[in-house]
């Protein structure tokens, strides 16, 4: 709690309480998505949940600990490949998939994290990007994971199609709740203390390296779990899908838009961005990326600190405009 005092009120660390409760309520509603019996809706929401889980993973290291990673897709890819390799050896069980992904991602995070988490700021970011790119190239060149041709998994029948939706839902819910409880624990305060001032945190007796590796590993496990469910649901894994650029950038964009360092931000961001993307894709097949990009530009220009800023804003439009003015030159 020593570190906590520097951070501020308890409610501040996970965001507004009513927002989180609403988020949980929406999560509850999403449990009924399969009852539409519509494959398109099912797939769309499964993707939203997947991005939300990855965004939670990024949020722990990037949002709470303040170490902006550009390579969290590495964990998603590891998770996806864990499932693919298990399926190749004849094991098609989503619990085994997630279990293996959690173990592998945690190990990978510790081995890679110990050297690169010594780097600060942009240098850490570029190192993580390097890790993700290196893994992509490695996956392209390793024969036992199918090389650039990828691996086929057991094709999901209709019953499994819904099963994977629930699995993804469960993964996302666990990520959300884990973020909420971690943030309110001593662990979360340590993360935030490192974000606010690493030297001061160290003086308070927090070992930065240890807590940074923990945040990086926990976040990595979240991304890995999402990947482990994605692979069998998708039925196919190759380096292009497992380490897709979108899977790297979207979760970051979602966390920023929803609100970094909050327990509801990633989910809200995922819902919003994926929702907008889906609608645009349906309306303008050709130019949807143009409008999608333009909408993100507008959001960043008018809400550079994400939606959670708007929720916590006191002082109305005048305050908002004066805050915006502080960002321009």
């Amino acid at each position: 709690m020593k570190a906590g005092a520097a951070v501020g009120r308890r409610a501040g660390i996970t965001g507004k309480r009513w927002v989180f409760i609403s988020t949980l309520a929406i999560m509850g509603l999403l449990l009924f998505v399969p009852s539409f019996h519509n494959d398109y809706i099912n797939l769309t929401f499964r993707n939203i949940l997947m991005y939300a889980a990855m965004s939670y993973g990024w949020n722990l290291i990037g949002g709470y600990t303040g170490y902006v990673s550009f390579g969290n897709v590495a964990f998603f890819g590891i998770g996806a490949y864990c499932s693919a390799v298990l399926s190749k050896t004849g094991i098609d069980n989503v619990f085994a998939d997630v279990g293996l992904a959690l173990v592998m991602c945690a190990l990978f995070a510790i081995v890679v994290g110990l050297p690169i988490l010594r780097l600060r700021g942009h240098y850490f970011g570029i190192a993580t990007l390097g890790v993700a790119l290196g893994l992509t190239d490695l996956a392209n060149n390793l024969d036992f994971v199918g090389g650039s041709g990828g691996l086929n998994l057991k094709q999901a029948d209709q019953a499994h199609f819904y099963l994977y939706y629930y699995a993804m839902w469960a993964v996302t819910l666990v990520c959300m709740l884990a973020t909420f409880f971690i943030a309110r624990s001593k662990l979360g305060y340590a993360f935030v203390a490192i974000r606010e001032n690493e030297e001061a945190a160290q003086v308070l007796g927090i070992s930065p390296t240890r807590y940074k590796v923990i945040a990086w590993a926990l976040g990595g496990m979240m991304g890995g779990a999402a990947g482990a469910v994605f692979a069998p649901a998708n039925g196919f894994v190759d380096p292009g899908t497992a380490f897709a650029v979108d899977n790297n950038v979207f979760p970051i964009a979602m966390a920023i838009l929803g609100g970094m360092g909050t327990a509801s931000g990633p989910f809200i961001g995922a819902l919003l961005l994926s929702g907008v993307n889906e609608i645009l894709q349906e309306k303008f097949l050709w130019l949807h990326s143009l409008f999608f990009g333009a909408i993100i530009v507008l959001i960043v220009v008018f809400l550079p600190r994400g939606l959670m800023y708007l929720v916590g804003l006191r002082g109305g439009v005048r305050r908002w405009l004066s805050d915006l003015r502080a960002f321009r030159v």
Binding site: A253, G293, F327
Partner: peptide, 19 residues
């Protein structure tokens, strides 16, 4: 937004590149 946290311009230039 150039003085906003670095991730704001990160996201902004990503969106510009998309456009």
């Amino acid at each position: 937004v150039v003085r906003a946290p670095v991730l704001a311009t990160f996201l902004l230039t990503f969106a510009l590149s998309l456009v």
